[in-house]
Design a protein around this nucleic acid. Sequence first.
DNA 1: CCCGAATGGATACAGTCGTATCCTAACGCT
DNA 2: AGCGTTAGGATACGACTGTATCCATTCGGG
Lengths: 209, 209
Amino acid sequence: MPRQVDHDERRRLLTEALLRIAGTRGLRAVSMREIAAEAGVSLRVVQYYFANKQALLESGLTELGARMDRRVKQRAAAAAGELTPRGVLAAVLGAIVPFDEQSRLDSMAWTAYYSAALTDPALAAAGLTLPNALENFLTLRLTAAQQAGDIAPDRDPRTEVAGLLALANGLTSSVLSGQRSHEAATEIIDYYLDRLFGRDHRGFDPHPP
Amino acid sequence: MPRQVDHDERRRLLTEALLRIAGTRGLRAVSMREIAAEAGVSLRVVQYYFANKQALLESGLTELGARMDRRVKQRAAAAAGELTPRGVLAAVLGAIVPFDEQSRLDSMAWTAYYSAALTDPALAAAGLTLPNALENFLTLRLTAAQQAGDIAPDRDPRTEVAGLLALANGLTSSVLSGQRSHEAATEIIDYYLDRLFGRDHRGFDPHPP
DNA sequence: CCCGAATGGATACAGTCGTATCCTAACGCT
DNA sequence: AGCGTTAGGATACGACTGTATCCATTCGGG
């Protein structure tokens, strides 16, 4: 039984067990022994593949970031039929707000990590790269959309993107706490996108006759 | 030294010590012994005035809610010179995003409580009353503003308020993580309020000539 | 005056935590 | 075939947790 084990595979297994616990019972409930039990292995195995708990936690955060990134790209590609800037924006924002059980669990874990990072500098750095990258990416797209005439010239792309991302984060909070359904959150996002892209009754017409 | 102690005062002291720890080092760092040390008393005193840790945590959440409420009312009253609906909205939203050291610490503690509440039903109920009350209050005000002609008739007050509160929460997250300054967050809020109240160049004029 | 309640110091207890150590079993390689 | 490395089971250690208990003060009211 020894020898011939895929270390990366083992680490992936343990990281997934960690995220399952963090998503259902919070980071407080994450201990080396709990991870071992969740993964169906002994405590020694967890210790064998991760030098210490800190490394395990960082691995969890990295995996969580990768999942978010994958989800965003997946939804953006699914909406590729309509390559409109609005479609991209809607896909990305829709991928942030949890829409199924798995993304709900991941958002829970993400929230737990976020609040831990506020008082743990080791996690803070790793947790900020993804949001910043998203913000820059969307700002580029929206600026291009503005130059193409898809949104009004007096809109500020940077502010709009910052606002929309903050909106999506805030809505995620309310969805996680059961205050609002996923559908209600999506409606609010659409409401704002409608106004940004000029589908309100007195707004900017992207393609005047 | 015994006798003649104000129990409420003692509990307030301990609760403040708890919130100081939660705001600076997170809820994870909150233990009975740490609270005792922070408050400058012995462990026994903490046990004497709170039956268990759970009661202490709930007291912290209650106090945090009271502080938020106080801040909102204070800022709303300070902006009472201009009784405009926009002034009220700006004051409330501005009170949510941390604007000084104390409100930053409280927001930190609030975030810690929020994420703990996601996996601890005992805290969940108490944590939701304040946001819901705020949302209802603001929706009433905005509906009245709409009937008075201060915002366009095609706006949906419920959606607008839900969006603005989610926006303020999301901005709070980014301010706490150092991603954005308080001023930058305020500008984004103002940007959205400008559009809602018709100060954009092609928008609704609240008082046409 | 003094007795009983209020207040809090000191210490103990049973768990759980992250981490370290000891030891055995199984495989690849020469 | 046997040797050394790899993989993991079992267990221990010291620190820390919430909670409980024992005991000494000190005061108000009879």
